[in-house]
């Protein structure tokens, strides 16, 4: 469904057609399809926000929230910033947009523990976005992958957050304490997915970082062309 719509929508985004308010209903439906089917199309979503910007009366907070949550799923890309720039101060303070702003902020700061705690405390907010948790975990893995050579498994488990699909229960506090113990299967899944390696002593080997991250010495190079000019002059 999302794939089929992608084609139709692409023609709606060409040139001046992008600003045609008649396209808004289709584009909004497309946003909902993306949430349901775990698809993503930044350009179409920005066009929706643009139409809201041109005609504030059509603004729909529900659709906007979905667009913003979808932008979170595309970290580390800066899609969220792009969306934010098309809104305005008043909109950012309305609920639930303000909650999403908070989520984005802690995610940008890489404070994953706080992020997961907040997500688990209001499961109804993110549950509409299919594949939300795993998309965030992809971002976590991206950051882990560029930062660590070896990391403790418990640290990794904490960064990856709790297990998916846990029903929201009142015993949240107990659950939070358990959570550090729970996700070993989840951790293993992500370790395998990224080709990392579980080692003894509860360590996970990520990658040989010293191959990529090493001290660079930039020395001066003088190319043939520039010295040729001198040689010609000295002849």
């Amino acid at each position: 469904m999302a794939e089929a719509m992608r084609q139709t929508v692409a023609t709606m985004l060409k040139g001046i057609e992008r600003y045609n308010p008649d396209n808004l209903p289709t584009l909004q439906r497309y946003v909902e399809t993306q949430s349901r089917e775990n698809a993503y199309d930044l350009e179409a979503n920005l066009a929706v926000l643009k139409l809201y910007q041109f005609d504030p009366q059509t603004y729909n907070v529900e659709i906007t929230s979905q667009i913003l949550l979808k932008a979170l799923t595309n970290f580390p890309h800066t899609d969220f910033v792009l969306c934010k720039c098309l809104l305005n101060e008043k909109r950012l303070m309305e609920s639930p947009v303000d909650h999403i702003m908070y989520l984005a902020d802690v995610l940008e700061r890489c404070d994953f523990e706080t992020f997961w705690n907040r997500v688990h405390s209001m499961p109804e907010l993110c549950s509409r976005i299919v594949g939300f948790h795993d998309s965030i975990r992809k971002f976590v893995c991206h950051v882990v992958g560029i930062t660590f050579q070896t990391v403790e498994k418990s640290v990794l488990a904490q960064l990856l957050g709790g297990v998916d699909g846990k029903p929201f229960i009142a015993l949240r506090v107990v659950l939070a304490k358990l959570r550090a113990l729970v996700p070993h299967a989840t951790v293993r899944h992500w370790v395998n997915k990224y080709g990392w390696r579980e080692e003894s002593n509860n360590l996970v080997f990520i990658a040989n970082q010293d191959e990529n991250i090493k001290t660079k010495n930039i020395t001066e190079k003088i190319d043939f062309e520039s010295s040729a000019a001198i040689m010609a002059a000295l002849r």
Binding site: Q209, I213, I218
Partner: peptide
């Protein structure tokens, strides 16, 4: 930089002075 367990390994960029352009 990268982190190996409890140790941070740092890589910096050192730029040598450039004289060539000036002399040319």
């Amino acid at each position: 930089f990268y982190i190996d367990l409890d140790m941070i390994h740092i890589a910096d960029t050192k730029v040598a002075h450039r004289y060539g352009d000036f002399f040319i």
